[in-house]
Computed example of a mutant assay.
Amino acid sequence: MTSFISDQDFTTPAHIRTAPPDDERAPGAPKNPSRPLLSIIFLAAVWLVVSAVPFGYIGAGRYDVFWSDAVTGVTIAIVTTLRLLHPRLISFGWVTGGLAGWLLVAPLVLQYGWSTSTVNDVIVGILVLTCAALANGDDRDG
Score class of each variant (00 low, 15 high):
15 H>D: 14
15 H>L: 15
19 A>G: 10
19 A>F: 15
20 P>W: 11
20 P>I: 13
20 P>N: 15
21 P>M: 09
22 D>A: 14
23 D>N: 15
23 D>G: 09
24 E>W: 14
24 E>Q: 14
26 A>H: 15
26 A>L: 11
27 P>M: 10
28 G>F: 15
29 A>R: 12
30 P>K: 01
32 N>Q: 15
33 P>E: 07
33 P>C: 04
33 P>Q: 04
35 R>L: 11
36 P>S: 05
38 L>D: 01
39 S>T: 12
39 S>H: 11
41 I>E: 00
41 I>V: 11
42 F>K: 02
43 L>R: 07
46 V>L: 10
48 L>D: 00
51 S>D: 09
53 V>Q: 12
53 V>G: 12
54 P>N: 06
56 G>W: 01
56 G>K: 00
60 A>Q: 08
60 A>D: 11
60 A>I: 09
64 D>Q: 06
65 V>R: 00
65 V>T: 09
66 F>K: 01
67 W>C: 05
67 W>V: 08
69 D>S: 13
70 A>P: 00
70 A>W: 07
71 V>A: 08
74 V>Q: 02
74 V>W: 05
77 A>I: 10
77 A>C: 08
78 I>F: 15
80 T>C: 03
80 T>M: 05
81 T>Y: 13
82 L>N: 09
83 R>T: 03
83 R>G: 00
83 R>V: 06
84 L>E: 02
86 H>A: 14
87 P>A: 02
88 R>P: 06
89 L>V: 07
90 I>M: 06
90 I>Y: 10
91 S>T: 15
91 S>I: 15
93 G>T: 03
96 T>F: 02
96 T>A: 07
96 T>E: 05
97 G>A: 07
97 G>E: 04
98 G>Q: 07
98 G>I: 11
99 L>P: 00
102 W>P: 00
102 W>D: 01
107 P>C: 05
107 P>H: 05
109 V>Q: 05
110 L>M: 12
110 L>W: 09
111 Q>Y: 13
111 Q>C: 13
111 Q>D: 14
112 Y>E: 01
115 S>M: 11
116 T>F: 14
119 V>N: 06
119 V>L: 14
121 D>V: 04
121 D>N: 13
122 V>E: 02
123 I>K: 04
123 I>F: 13
123 I>R: 04
124 V>M: 06
124 V>T: 08
125 G>T: 03
126 I>S: 06
126 I>M: 10
127 L>M: 10
127 L>H: 03
128 V>E: 00
128 V>F: 00
128 V>M: 02
129 L>Y: 01
129 L>E: 05
129 L>D: 05
130 T>H: 02
133 A>E: 06
133 A>S: 13
